[in-house]
Structure formats: C-alpha cells, structure tokens
C-alpha cells in the first residue's frame, strides 16, 4: 500500500510537501490507522493524533482521498492501493496531519453545551420518559472529531461567525433535552444571519460524519422551532 502524506514542520520547512510511504501490510492490519502507525515506525517524524483506535475518541480525523474520516475506522480493504492523506481542511495546520482546533472548540463552547435547569435539584434523578430520552439519540453520540465542520464550505468561509454543523448538532441536543429550560435563550443566541443561517443544507456534514449522525436534520429542527416560535 502506498500512502502520500501531507508533510509540514514549521520548525524546518518553508512550505508543505507530499511524502510517499510504501507500507508492507500484514494480516493484522485492518484499518488505515494501522498503516499510519507503520509509516511512523519507518519515519518517527511523521506526526498525527490518535488514541482509542476504535472510533470513539475523535483524535484521528483527517482527509482521506479527499473525504474526511477517522483513520481508525476506515478499513484498508475499502481503500484503493494508493491513498492520499491531508490534514482536515479549513483549519490552520500545526504540523503534518495535526490541525489547530481552537476555532472549532470555540464554536462548540459558544452554544453553552450543558443542561441548564435552574430548579433546585431533587434528591433523586430528574425523571425523563423513554420517549423524551429517545430525542437525544443521534445527537449525544457526537465525538467532536470535526470531520463535519471541516467539510462544510460555510464553516471554511466563516469559522469565526458560523457555529458549524458540530456545534449546531449539540445546540439541538440541549434544546431537545426535556431537562433543559433554556430553549428560548438558546434560540435567541442562534437567531443570527451567521450563527445558524449560514447553513445552506448542502449536507457535506452528513456525508462526512463517521458516527452516522445527521447535523443537517438537527439544524432543520432548530429552524423549525424558530419558525414555530414566531407564528
């Protein structure tokens, strides 16, 4: 298998370049991350993030043959023999496949990603019916890998003003939570030409999400509630 990998070390490189690695695959190498780890044994200066190697921590998001995904759950068998790896698009590159995610997390933090409930906490759990809990499915599973937001042209253009699909998915996760009391405050915050309405439903996010989540649908629901609130 041949990997062509984007290389850039600001400590020594004037500009980025692509570097090729030929990997001898063994039977145990199932996922792209296995091949990347092998490339790093060849060349310890190759830099990328990784941790859980099972698709739950969100560390190893990258652009794989033009599409964003997690290296640890991308099967080698599903890839051609020659794979091109680049950092997630639209975010500043720190080094090689490692990007600066500050802007991405800033947007996540901006939606107040926590349940707001100002009633005095009861002695036991707050009750929630299975149907109410069901509303959180497809939302809470987000791993903050940024595959979606960095596949979104609106986020590329306005990463400082547009919340982006990941942040909006979470905004809806808290709106949808029966225990949260801050829906109108949350809607006020999003009712803005940029924060929510830069989404033009081109659905790159849905295509990119390695967890099979649907930010476009969540964004649609936020818009729906907003409309209902006006009429």
């Amino acid at each position: 298998m041949k990997l062509s990998i984007y290389r850039y070390d600001p400590d020594k490189d004037e500009r980025p370049c692509m570097q090729d690695y030929v990997i001898e695959l063994e039977h145990a190498d199932r996922m792209l991350l296995d091949a990347l780890v092998k490339a790093k044994v060849q060349d310890d200066s190759l830099s990328f993030r990784r941790s859980c190697r099972e698709g739950v921590c969100g560390s190893d998001a990258m652009n794989i043959n033009g599409k964003n995904g997690l290296a640890c759950v991308t099967k080698i068998a599903d890839l051609p023999d020659h794979v091109t790896l680049r950092p997630l698009p639209g975010l500043p590159v720190i080094r090689d496949l490692i990007v600066d995610m500050t802007q991405f997390f800033k947007q996540y933090h901006s939606i107040k990603p926590y349940v707001i409930n100002n009633d005095p906490p009861p002695e036991r759990e707050r009750l929630q019916s299975p149907a109410e809990r069901e509303e959180l499915n497809g939302l809470y599973e987000c791993i903050l890998c940024a595959c979606c937001s960095t596949a979104c042209p609106s986020f590329w253009w306005n990463p400082d003003k547009f919340v982006g699909p990941a942040g909006l998915l979470q905004a809806y996760r808290f709106i949808a939570d029966s225990r949260d009391q801050a829906t109108s405050e949350r809607l006020d915050d999003l009712e803005d030409p940029y924060r929510l309405f830069r989404c033009h439903s081109i659905m790159n996010c849905v295509d990119a999400c390695p967890k099979g989540l649907n930010p476009t649908k969540a964004i649609g629901k936020i818009k729906e509630i907003m409309v209902r609130r006006i009429v």
Binding site: Y114, V115, R124, E125, R126, L127, P130, E132, R133, L136
Partner: peptide, 19 residues
C-alpha cells in the same frame, strides 16, 4: 450518580422515567 444525572448525563430510562 444522581448528581451526574442532574449535570445532564443522557442515561437510558425506564418506563417510569427513572434511570
């Protein structure tokens, strides 16, 4: 665990709404 629920933890629920 109850505190964690109050923080917003999305526990699965029983028919009666408990964890």
């Amino acid at each position: 665990v109850v505190e964690l629920e109050h923080m917003g933890m999305p526990f699965d629920r029983l028919e009666n709404g408990k964890i």
